[in-house]
Computed example of a mutant assay.
Amino acid sequence: MPTEAQKTDTTISDSRAAPAQLAAAVTAGLRDRIDAELIAFLETHSRNLVEIGPEAAPLAQVLVDFLRAGGKRLRPLLCYWGWRGAGGADEQAILTAAASLELLHAFALVHDDIMDASDTRRGRPTVHRQFTTLHDRSRWHGDADLFGTGAGILVGDLYLMLSEAMLHQCDLPSHTRNTLRGLLTAMRVELAGGQYLDLVGQAQQEFSTATAARINRYKTAKYTVQRPLQIGGTLAGATPEVLAAYSEFGMPLGEAFQLRDDLLGAFGNHDSTGKSTMDDLRKGKPTWLIASAWHHADPVQRRRISALYGNPDLDATHAGELREIIIATGARDGAERLITTHTERALHALRTAPLAPEARAALRELAHAATTRTT
């Protein structure tokens, strides 16, 4: 027979498990619901593009296919649980609003791939490369790369405009949407500013952990975690305390997420990530990982970093040499420790946040998935 203490422990365990099980069940089906919302919305607008002229059919097809090709849907999921954490119910309006953030993210990815001259995304050719191939295969006049870049910019622009349109078609009070406008503007400006810092960092080849952390803060932490949570919370009428809790949870989690991304960019598996593990090294991305390696490197290692990092002709052998330096200087282990530290800070903030229990459980699982992922 169980003792009274064992009975109490079981009751506590069950009471904690119930919100977690509920959250897991909701989140499991949420991605499919978001995807269905996105594809239905995009298919309507892709038909409108084809009506402009049959030549626009490839543009319309890419618009839908890029979203079909995958994605973590992290920003919509965080937006949804930001709403639920503030007391919002599961309803169509928040699903539409949350899905609109994935279109904003698609805009950012397509333009980011153009700026980085990336060849693959999600295991497929990047959008601008698909249009370059279309130009080549069609034997059209002019520069195929320039055509691909132009068409890719248009696809990104369409996602940006359609994200706004999708948000405004959701059934939410106009005053709520007006309150949201400031947050969305901040999110977009922070994203653009962080992206520019990233470009400058590549151009300057400044190996600074402080600069890398600032880029991570604006390009990723705010845009990926903090703002989606706050948008969901604002739509649900969250209190200032809840919005502050979303910042305390979201910022360290976003920084951990970016550090994991940097590690995958250098050490990941192409088959898992769907992206080249050479891009960051060849472009000279101003990551915390390389800045830490530089800081701890000896003179010989620094000379090799200077010679190899950011070299567009970097081959697999020299990429391996760079990875060995990152490991030898302790930068890879340091990034893992920092991920753990940031994640623990985020989870500590979550434990004390004034949120609905099922939302707290869902956010805890999303934090784990975001920081331990292999894709």
Rank of each mutant, 00 (worst) to 15 (best):
I231M: 13
L253N: 07
A236Y: 00
G250Y: 05
T220P: 09
L289K: 02
E255V: 14
Q258R: 04
A244W: 00
M251N: 12
K222Q: 08
D280R: 12
Y218V: 02
K219D: 00
A293N: 07
K219P: 01
W288M: 02
T277F: 09
G265H: 10
A236S: 00
I231V: 15
T273K: 04
T277Y: 08
A238S: 04
H270W: 06
R282P: 10
A236M: 01
R227C: 02
T220G: 04
L235V: 11
T277H: 12
V242N: 00
A266W: 15
R260C: 11
T277L: 04
D279Q: 10
I231T: 10
K219M: 01
L253Y: 02
D279L: 13
Y218T: 07
T273A: 09
K275M: 06
A293C: 09
T239W: 00
Y246F: 15
N269V: 15
D271I: 12
L264Y: 09
Y223W: 00
G233K: 06
S272I: 06
M251Q: 14
G250E: 09
K222V: 05
P252S: 12
L289F: 07
K275P: 07
A236R: 00
M251R: 12
H270L: 13
L281T: 05
L243C: 03
T239I: 03
L264K: 11
Q226R: 14
A245E: 04
P286Q: 01
F249D: 03
T277S: 15
A238Y: 01
A236T: 04
G250L: 12
T234P: 13
M278F: 14
E248L: 15
F257C: 10
A293F: 10
L235W: 04
R260N: 08
K275G: 08
A245G: 12
Y218W: 14
S247C: 14
E241G: 02
D262I: 12
V225L: 05
A245M: 02
R217E: 15
G268D: 06
G274V: 13
A245Y: 02
H270C: 12
G274N: 11
T239Y: 03
H270M: 14
A256D: 12
L235A: 01
H270I: 15
G233T: 10
T234E: 11
Q258K: 05
T287L: 11
G254D: 10
F257A: 06
G284H: 10
T220Q: 06
L229P: 12
S276C: 10
Q258P: 11
I290K: 00
E241R: 01
